[in-house]
């Protein structure tokens, strides 16, 4: 059965001067899957995610996100959620203020926002934090809230750029539970990470190195193909191959 594609990328190139950050990337992402982008720092993950989110334009190549190409970034933006590696809720606003702000920006009315906020806070058992300033909350809770806000308006796709960097293992675990829950609602999750173990949680994984895609498949297929017991081992094997050929 032909699965529905929500992201189509063909020969995507992004250059900054003479530096090639994304070198002919080609991949498709299917509806409802958890799609991982794995790579070392500086491999080009953030550049790619920023293009897909309409924050940056490709130098060349075809990019279709939620049915719109990269030349219509505002249409894309209506249909996605985004969480950057920098924490970006407003520290000087309360939890409810932040939710209301982003809900409102995505065109929701106060009538829709209020009950939904209550439900969300109850689900995360954050009821007591509703009127607390974000800035006074511990990092783990902030991070979970940032994710909850990114999917609050039910986007088609949510882009997470290293969402768990600098977070303790327990929060990371809970964070991935939230990701699974989101995917089960039919929201496609596009996540970048440099934690190898997190790649195992994805439906499919893309491994990037020096701006190029070096491998793309399900975690188990990749392990088999490279005869590795874990993605971590696989990643090291690929990196070694690279340096040998170079």
């Amino acid at each position: 059965m032909e699965r529905e594609k929500v992201i189509e990328v063909k020969d995507l190139v992004k250059k900054f001067g003479s530096f090639v950050a994304n070198d002919h990337l080609t991949f498709d992402v299917y509806k409802g899957e958890i799609f991982g982008f794995l790579g070392a720092n500086g491999a080009g993950k953030t550049t790619a995610i920023r293009i897909l989110c309409g924050l940056s334009r490709p130098t060349s190549g075809k990019v279709l996100v939620a049915g719109f190409d990269a030349n219509h970034p505002e249409e894309i933006k209506k249909r996605i959620g985004y969480m950057s590696q920098r924490f970006s809720l407003y520290n000087d606003l309360t939890v409810k203020d932040n939710i209301e702000l982003y809900g409102g920006i995505y065109g929701m009315t106060m009538k829709e926002i209020r009950p939904r906020t209550e439900r969300l806070l109850a689900k995360l058992s954050f009821n007591q934090y509703g009127d607390t300033l974000i800035g006074s909350l511990p990092p783990g809770i902030k991070q979970k809230l940032a994710f909850a806000v990114a999917v609050f308006h039910d986007p088609e796709i949510v882009f997470l750029d290293e969402p768990t960097s600098g977070v303790d293992p327990i929060t990371r675990r809970q964070f991935w539970e939230m990701i699974y829950e989101t995917a089960s609602r039919g929201i496609t999750v596009f996540v970048t990470t440099h934690y190898m173990d997190e790649a195992e949680y994805c439906d499919r994984v893309t491994i990037m190195n020096e701006g190029m895609i070096v491998a793309l498949d399900t975690p188990s297929a990749l392990r088999e193909k490279y005869n590795a017991s874990s993605i971590e081992e696989l990643f090291l094997k690929i990196a070694r191959q690279k340096t040998e050929t170079a």
């Binding site: 989110c53 309409g54 924050l55 505002e74 933006k77 209506k78 996605i80 985004y82 950057s84 920098r86 924490f87 970006s88 809720l89 407003y90 520290n91 982003y102 920006i105 995505y106 065109g107």
Partner: peptide
Amino acid sequence: EIGTSEQINVTPV
């Protein structure tokens, strides 16, 4: 500087 403008820029505002 604090990165909130990027978050706003990725919305359809």
